[in-house]
Design a protein around this nucleic acid. Structure first.
Lengths: 226, 226
DNA sequence: GGAATAGTGTCTGTAAGACAGTATATC
DNA sequence: GATATACTGTCTTACAGACACTATTCC
């Protein structure tokens, strides 16, 4: 066992969603020092009595602060340093998560003090700790993964159309993609089933797809170009 | 500040090298409980008085336990859990690192109790904590990166030939690669300079390459196939 | 029919895989 | 010259990008 003081350990999550054409991040306004009233990521201290891993902490805090159970949650990176937190050497295990805005909107806006903020506006915001850096790191990871996998489907509800998928991907990577390329990738990945229902959002009715229950995230051998 | 007990925080590194055709990992034999006499990864507790980040802890421990300053060091992942360590809820920030065996061999074998173990032998070894899992995770990351970047150069000395690079890549990914593909990638990446010296290892003399001083790791848009 | 959205056919471009062919060294 | 290693030329293959074309629905 170490003789010296152990670092503080917190867990924070960068939860993304896409609304219309905009990538958004869930933030909460701090009610305690340090950085009172600044925006920060939803998170908190690990409680070894409840959490069996830090992933549990991440889930628990997202549920508590915004009533959200994300479709996708993965560990991002751990941030550490002597000067990140005025209280001393601090370690933050950061997670990144995805959800469909359809699964969340009412809950977040009414009951809690959490808010969806446009990713592009975060740059100019007053953010606690190094949370701006954490969000930027999470975004870069999400963007990269969007280029070689179908991860963005986790920003969609259970049933979705190719146009919806196209829209979330474009919001994430910030560039138009070819519908044809998407269709080829949907087939290649074998992650989805065409349902027998269609939906009329625009003019012609669109085929609805759904993620196979046991689907693994397929990694394509080539990236889409940025 | 949290009222409850904070988790234990350690830092461990998975240091790889390639000797001949074999991928090796640096392990140390534990001299204290728990898991006394089992093999484990080189690492230890964060000391906030010395380390300004957990990366510093990783470097410091590699230097102390094996006198090694790796060519490459990146954060791998953080492992956490209530049952990983008999002493309580424990968090391990794991790093993965690369070095050329030419830069290390004498030091490790004589002065310290650290030892290079064949990656393929680790499966059957008596390993402390969940270090087997950590090593497997590190290997998967290294293998993936070898498919879309020139990361394996960090397993080579300053001057190296294409054949040497081919050899380390093949040891890492476990498959032959086309020499031609490598040459194309070396050019495309613009990470290297052809030196004006050549070396005679086999029959015809081979061109020596070296990493540019300010080189960033280039990410290719396509993976090599496994 | 016109307009808007959904979906297909197919050509081009790029980079990896395969492999034959050439070059340079040692004996 | 024989052989082994280093290096080049070039054909094939896979898949993303581009974009014209067809299909279906609403008005």
């Amino acid at each position: 066992m170490p003789e010296y003081i152990q670092p503080l350990v917190t867990v924070d999550s960068v939860l993304f969603t896409v609304v219309e054409d905009n990538l958004k991040v869930l933030l909460v306004q701090r009610s305690i020092e340090p950085f009172i009233d600044s925006w920060s990521l939803p998170g908190g201290f690990v409680d070894p009595a409840i959490d069996s891993t830090t992933e549990d902490t991440a889930s628990r805090k997202l549920a508590a602060k915004a009533g959200i159970h994300p479709n996708y949650l993965e560990q991002l990176q751990t941030f550490s340093g002597a000067n990140r937190d005025p209280r001393g050497f601090a370690i933050t295990v950061a997670y990144f998560a995805l959800i469909a805005h359809q699964q969340t909107s009412t809950h977040v806006e009414t009951v809690h003090d959490a808010e969806w903020i446009d990713y592009d506006d975060i740059e100019h915001l007053d953010m606690a700790f190094d949370h701006k850096l954490i969000i930027k790191t999470a975004y870069e990871r999400l963007q990269q993964k969007a280029l070689y996998s179908m991860l963005p489907v986790f920003c969609l509800p259970e049933l979705f159309t190719i146009s919806q998928l196209k829209q979330v991907i474009e919001a994430i990577i910030g560039k138009e993609v070819q519908r044809k390329s998407l269709i080829r990738r949907i087939e290649k990945s074998e992650m989805f089933t065409e349902t027998d229902s269609k939906v009329a959002t625009g003019k012609r009715q669109a085929q609805l797809y759904t993620l196979k229950p046991d689907a693994n995230i397929f990694h394509f051998e080539r990236n889409m170009s940025l």
